[in-house]
Structure formats: structure tokens, C-alpha cells
Design a protein around this nucleic acid. Structure first.
Lengths: 346, 346
DNA sequence: ATTACTGATGTAAGCGCTTACATTTGTACT
DNA sequence: AGTACAAATGTAAGCGCTTACATCAGTAAT
């Protein structure tokens, strides 16, 4: 592998000049600039980032900590983030905690986290629903340059990118109500997850406010997996309780609901309306396409990347980017899984 | 940030000793070992990987180049790979080419690739279906320490992890035939993709071999997207051609097929059987759950990671791992989307 | 007691960059 | 012609590690 030195000799200049033409071309004469460019080309030089990091005491690297890659919810965020970061010359190094629902390995979490830190990342973006709050606080104490997506830790709310799950729940409720539904069931996400709780609370409150309180026995516990949706729906169906609509707190469970309906010979949406949450890839894969609540993932990623950049070394040289929006509003995406059951116009 | 130096002073030893207790603890006296451990703890030291990389001329980093994170096919592979690599003390740095079907950006591809190389990765795992063959050859020339998943480049077949798509196609055909289907349609993947072509060829050949050749006009072109599956199926349905089963060359298109059937009021599998390919997350999300051909992604990832490790610097110190299997066989996963239409037993 | 090892530790060079500072060159004034 | 200053380039130190080599016990054999 050729080094800066090699290039310098080849071009007949000093290493400083080569370095400068690479990093601050405006400081070097156009003619030497081309000489150097030529030398780089013939030697096939690529800069050694390790040496650069060491010399600059800055790694130009942002860590991204996620639960696992399989979650459809993470993918768009990761795509976007990696993209923006590269645009600013930053690398993204990814670690996964390996967490999946019901299988959390604290050891692996810590190792992934440590791994990022010793890699001298300048900032970390946490995209994990499954690292628990206490652990998260620890991490933040250890490495404060962290931005959280969809998690909230009181101290530092301007480093949290959040979306209003409460409003999302309300949106779902409104939509069902607007379409004439009164006998409504809900399938919750994991008990201890604030996002799930808020979705539920928003939903319940809105129903109540519109004079149509949800019955206790129509609230079922799920855990965000497809099968938990299927199971809950089977209970609903077996209950011979006249339910016309169900709100599943995420799309995976909504898909499970649709599955259970088909199995039982119930038509969606004709006999059962369902609304999901997340607008994940599943929403348009199942039939009928799911009416769901979407989070503006793209904008959220953008904010996260910007925030991370601002926390990094970069801003000390090139200044800080305008501070991005951190709180976002969800929106209802109307598709085919909800039926209007209001009596026809007179 | 405390350095090795700081730790050494704190512990009253030389930097070499600290370094050794970190990397080859067996070379240092137990008592100094604990002294050093103590010093590390109180100072909160974490090693600077950049300096380490530079000194060792090895980054302990493997690059993973993918198309985008959203593809459900990639996720399990990435999960597994990152995991194994970390187990061996290796970092994974991920870059995405940003390619999605019908939207390929060669510039971004190259930048992602360059980015990995200047990061001094020791080896690259390419997990991309969309970088084209010519470009891939270029890349390999530039950086030969590369392992390819599910791509084939003639020169170096022991660096390609492949799965036998041809056999996969055969499996699909056999299954349909075994269940009594004779009027069969196929929806192809992208024209220029070898994997898609092989799936198709295996399927067609098997049909032919069993005396049931597929008609030309029952082969439809898709591009691996859900909507292309839907569109193709609509054509089939409109064609008033008596088809009882369709083979979609991936699960996304199969999901699209199911969608189109529902829209047209056709029941799956009662009136239309469908088999997909990939055993992706979608397969168990749609109703009925898809009968599909699965690739042993976990084993494949394992091989890829092992190969990458063997190509890295590591093997020069710690020796090479046994050479892993590189060619894999797919398997048919029977679920609910195919109906047995053979006449009942007498 | 001397010599010859062996094992634990220290010394210092060097990995490939960046950058403060020194030097050279060119330009525009007196 | 001489001075002052700016622009372009060079010199060399140092980023935080690893590791070959040197040093220094301590032990065992002569």
C-alpha cells in the first residue's frame, strides 16, 4: 500500500503539500495540485484513515447502535443516516445489541457499546427499543455525545429525537370513530415500553373523550410480534364479543390480526377493520394494505444525523448546523383495512 | 481521554507492560497484571483503536457492502455476520450502495467502496445483488480480499458463497407437480440477474423433464418488487388462461400475487396456489403463509464471516480457520399457500 | 563462585498521517 | 535597490499504540 510519503516523492514535493492538496486544496498552487493528483493516480494511493484519525484526534466516525437489523422499523432510518453521514465525510460503524423481543443479552449490549467507544466514535446514535432505561442512563453518563431515537431520557431532551406516540394513538382512535366504529378492541405492545404505553393511552383517551370508552376486556396484551397479534385476535374472535374494529399497536401485530381473521373466515375490512402503527414494509405487503399510523422516519433520521454531526469534532472546525427539529408528529395513512360502517346517507 | 501512557504511570510500569497485559496477559506476572487492571479501572481507560491499527498495520475491521438495509433478505445475514466478527474481535463497518431496484447510482457505489478501502478494512464482504458484474470485477481487481455472497465471478470461486438457485427452481417445480398442478405460471425476477435466471431455468427444466413443459405465454417478467408481482398476477388473471398455480421468483412478488388474487376475489390456495422464494420475513406475515424456497442464510453468513477472517491479517498470527463450505443447497419450506389438487384416492 | 539460561520488564523506534512553525519565493511598495 | 508582506512549500514533531531488542533479575548447572 503506497503511503503519503510515496506520493510526495513521486510528485517531487513534501508530505505536507500532499496532505494539503488532499484536505485544503485552496492552499496549494494549481500546478502542484495537478502534479500531486497525477502521483496519487499512478501510485493508487488511498489515505490511511487510522493514521489520519490518530493525527487529528478525531475519527470521523459515528457509531450506530441498533437492536438487530431485521426490524423493518430500523432499516429506513439506517439507510438515511448512513447516507447523510457519508455526505459529510463521516463513517458509520454499526453495532447490534442482538436484542430481540424476549431475548435480551446485557453482556452483548455492553460489549457492543464498548466496542463503539474504543473505536473513538465521536458520537453515537442509539436506535434501540430494547436497551432498558437504567442501562441507557449508564451509557449516557459514560459517553454523553449520544443521540437517542425514539427514546426519552429526562435530562437531555434536546438529544432525543422523539415522535408523539400519544397523538398517534389518538389518530388511530379518531379514524375508527370517524368511520362509525364503536365496538373497538386494542392489542398493546410490550408492557414496559413507553412508546407502546403512549400509543395505548392516546387511543384510550381519545375514545373516552368522544364518549365511547373502551371496555377493559377488549384490551389485549401483545409484544409487537406477528404471532402475538394472531393470538390476541383469536381470543377476540373466540370471545363472541361483537367487535367491529381493532387497533394493533404496530404493523406486525396488525398483520397477525389479519392472518387470524382469514383463518377464522372473517373478512377484512368488511367484517373487521384494523389499523396498525409504523407504516412498515409489511403494511403494503399484506392484503388488504394496512391503514396505519406513520412516523416520519426520514425526517427523524435527518435530525439524528445532524445532531450527531453537531456533537462531533466537526463542528469545532466547520461550525454547527442549524439545530434540527427533535419532536415529530405522526400521521394517519389511510389504506384499505378500515371500512366505513356508518349508516348510509338518508 | 486517558492513554496507555497514563495507565502505565498510574500503575508504575512501562507502556510495554500495559500493552502486554492487554494483549498477551500470559507474558506478565499476575501481580503486575492486577496492578495494571486496577489502573485501567480507576483511569477509565479505553484503548485507542486508531493508534492500534496504525501500529499493527491492521485495522481489525471488515467491511460489509450492501445495497440497502431495507431488504429483508440482507438483515439476517448482517445480524449473523456482525456477530461472528465481533466474537473474533473484529469490527464491522457497513456501507450501503443505496441501490434499489431500478435506481442504481454508480457514483455512490464507488464512493461506498472507496470509503471501505481507505478505512483499511482487511477484507470486504459484498452482499449486493445490484452492483453489476463488470463493476464487481473492477472492485475485485482493486481489492482482492473480498468475499461475495450469492454472486459469482468466475476467477475465484472459493471466495463466493453461493446457493444453488437452479435446484431451488427445481424444488419449486417438483412441489407444484407433486400437488397435481399442471397449468402453471411463473413470474421472473429481473432479467439480467443470474440468480433469477437460474431459478427460472431450474423451474422450467424440471417441468419439462416431468413432461409438463411451461407455455411461453405463462412466463411473466417481474423485478422482485411487490407491485411487479401484483401486476403480473393481474395479467394472468385477465388472460382467462386456466392457471392453477404460480411460482414467483421471490417472496415479495409472491406477496404481490396473493394481493392481486384477493383483489380479484380469488382464494389462495383454494383457487390459486403460489410458491415464493427466499423464506423472507414476508412469508409468514401474509395470509396464507407462503410455501417458499429457503436459503440457509445463517450458514451462509457463517461461511462468509469465516472466509473474511481467513483473508484478513488475523490468520497470519492466529492461523487460519478450517475452510468453510461455500456452496449451499436451498430447501423447500412447506406452508399454506399451495393446495393439493390431485383427484382424491379411489 | 562463575556461567548460562529463562522469564519479566523496560527502552525506544516507528506505523502514516496532520499541522505549527520555519523557510523560500514572488509581488508591491518606498 | 531595498524593505515589507503574503503566498506557497518544506521541516519536523507528535498523535497513542505495538514490538524488536536490550536489560535485569532469579535460578540452576558447573
Amino acid at each position: 500500500m503506497p503511503t503519503l510519503q510515496d506520493v510526495a516523492i513521486l510528485a517531487g514535493v513534501s508530505t505536507a503539500t500532499v496532505s494539503r492538496t488532499l484536505n485544503k486544496p485552496e492552499l496549494v498552487e494549481p500546478v502542484t495540485r495537478t502534479k500531486v493528483a497525477e502521483a496519487i493516480k499512478v501510485s493508487g494511493y488511498t489515505r490511511n484513515e487510522a493514521a489520519r484519525s490518530l493525527a487529528m484526534r478525531s475519527s470521523r466516525t459515528i457509531g450506530l447502535l441498533t437492536d438487530n437489523f431485521a426490524s423493518s422499523y430500523f432499516a429506513p432510518i439506517m439507510d438515511e443516516t448512513v447516507d447523510i453521514l457519508r455526505e459529510y465525510g463521516y463513517y458509520t460503524i454499526v453495532e447490534a445489541t442482538g436484542n430481540v423481543a424476549n431475548n435480551i443479552d446485557p453482556g452483548k449490549q455492553r460489549r457492543a457499546w464498548q466496542s463503539l467507544i474504543s473505536r473513538q466514535v465521536e458520537s453515537i446514535i442509539v436506535l434501540s427499543l430494547l436497551v432498558d432505561d437504567a442501562e441507557l442512563e449508564n451509557m449516557l453518563r459514560e459517553f454523553p455525545n449520544t443521540v437517542l431515537i425514539d427514546r426519552h431520557v429526562h435530562e437531555d431532551s434536546n438529544r432525543c429525537i422523539t415522535v408523539d406516540h400519544y397523538v398517534g394513538g389518538q389518530l388511530a382512535a379518531k379514524h375508527l370513530l370517524d368511520n362509525g366504529h364503536r365496538n373497538i378492541a386494542m392489542i398493546s405492545g410490550p408492557e414496559n415500553k413507553p412508546d407502546a404505553n403512549l400509543r395505548g393511552k392516546g387511543f384510550i383517551d381519545e375514545l373516552l373523550r368522544q364518549g365511547c370508552p373502551i371496555k377493559e376486556n377488549r384490551i389485549f396484551q401483545g409484544d409487537y410480534t406477528i404471532t402475538s397479534g394472531t393470538n390476541a385476535m383469536q381470543q377476540i374472535l373466540n370471545g363472541k364479543d361483537e367487535v367491529s374494529a381493532v387497533f394493533a399497536q404496530n404493523d406486525d401485530m396488525a398483520a397477525g390480526v389479519v392472518n387470524a381473521c382469514y383463518t377464522a373466515g372473517i373478512k377484512v375490512p368488511e367484517q373487521m377493520s384494523v389499523v396498525g402503527f409504523d407504516n412498515s414494509a409489511l403494511a403494503t405487503a399484506v392484503f388488504p394494505h394496512l391503514t396505519t399510523v406513520s412516523q416520519p422516519l426520514k425526517s427523524m433520521s435527518h435530525s439524528a444525523a445532524t445532531l450527531a454531526l453537531n456533537l462531533s469534532q466537526r463542528h469545532q472546525r466547520e461550525g454547527v448546523l442549524p439545530n434540527p427539529q427533535t419532536h415529530f408528529m405522526p400521521a394517519l395513512i389511510e389504506r384499505m383495512s378500515v371500512m366505513d360502517i356508518r349508516p348510509k346517507q338518508r
